[in-house]
Design a protein around this nucleic acid. Structure first.
Length: 272
DNA sequence: AATGTAGTCAACCGCAGGCAT
DNA sequence: CATGCCTGCGGTTGACTACAT
């Protein structure tokens, strides 16, 4: 066996090696990416002398070899962020969630979520955190609606949008590079965790989130830089009512996974 | 000590979107 | 405009490890 985990043997299909990577292969890939940079994965195999598909090379690099990866356990702060963002995005945006957790991969977060929350009940602290998050989100949305009405009555409500964001556009390919960080004057912290791991949310930040005419991805980028230190991100840019679903039936482990899946939120977001 | 079960992690697969031709 | 390729993503699988019985 070559590696410490699974795929006890290496097979070769259509000339491509599969299964666990050897240290030699790792070195070849690292050397190649160091010299030529990421991308063009299909040519990596040829140029680096690897009998691996482009997909496999990319996956190995992204999930294991990248130098900026943070190894080790998910911290409580990171867990809180994952919980918040999963409440917002559901199961279909692991990469988006991962962008808010520097050094963590979507695969890692996905695995973590599945093992910790998919099957059994989450811990009390997580339950509490999520409940509070959703409650505050709902309150802020109500508050936002009120303010919007007031704003419209006073001056058509356009000034807020103008002062919040000024043309922030983050290219999809540039996710994670904090592209839009300088384009928005929004507060830098939308959600943070206190020492006990409970969520603290700043209404002004969420207020901006709601008003910004940006994609949800951009919103995450704006605030994602401090994720590791508990300055995580969460935005109420979408109009879904997560709290409606929460608390319906928690005793069933299988139900829990879907309980948090606010796919509707994602659909709303993509319309932006 | 042996066996069973759950947890963890790396890797693969299929699909979808973007881009070049 | 249509087609094909490349890249990235989410879902799933499979093997090892740790813990419980």
């Amino acid at each position: 066996m070559e590696g410490p985990f699974g795929w006890g043997r290496q097979e070769e299909v259509d000339g491509w090696r599969k299964g666990p990577w050897t240290s030699q292969e790792d070195k070849l890939l690292v050397d190649h990416v160091t010299q030529h940079g990421e991308g063009r994965w299909n040519s990596v195999s040829k140029l680096a002398g690897l009998k691996r598909s482009g997909k496999s090379c990319r996956l190995r690099w992204v999930n294991y070899l990248r130098p900026d990866l943070k190894r080790g356990k998910i911290t409580p702060q990171e867990e809180s962020i994952i919980v918040q963002l999963h409440a917002l995005w559901g199961n279909s945006r692991w990469s988006t969630i991962a962008h808010s957790l520097p050094g963590r991969t979507d695969n890692e977060i996905k695995n973590y979520w599945r093992t910790h929350f998919k099957k059994g009940k989450p811990s009390k602290s997580i339950e509490r955190a999520r409940a509070r998050f959703l409650k505050q989100r709902q309150e802020m949305m109500q508050q936002q609606q009120q303010q919007s009405l007031i704003g419209q009555l006073e001056e058509d409500g356009d000034q807020r949008r103008g002062t919040c964001c000024t043309g922030a556009t983050a290219d999809d390919d540039d996710r994670g590079s904090a592209t839009a960080g300088d384009a928005c004057a929004a507060p830098t912290t939308a959600v943070a965790t206190d020492a006990a791991g409970d969520l603290i949310m700043h209404v002004d930040a969420m207020d901006c989130f709601i008003m910004c005419p940006m994609s949800c991805d951009d919103l995450l980028l704006l605030h994602g830089a401090g994720g590791g230190q508990g300055g995580g991100t969460a935005g109420s840019c979408c109009g879904s009512t997560a709290s409606d679903e929460y608390g319906s039936s928690e005793e069933d482990g299988a139900t829990w996974g879907s309980l948090w899946n606010l796919d509707g939120a994602g659909e709303v977001c993509t319309l932006w």
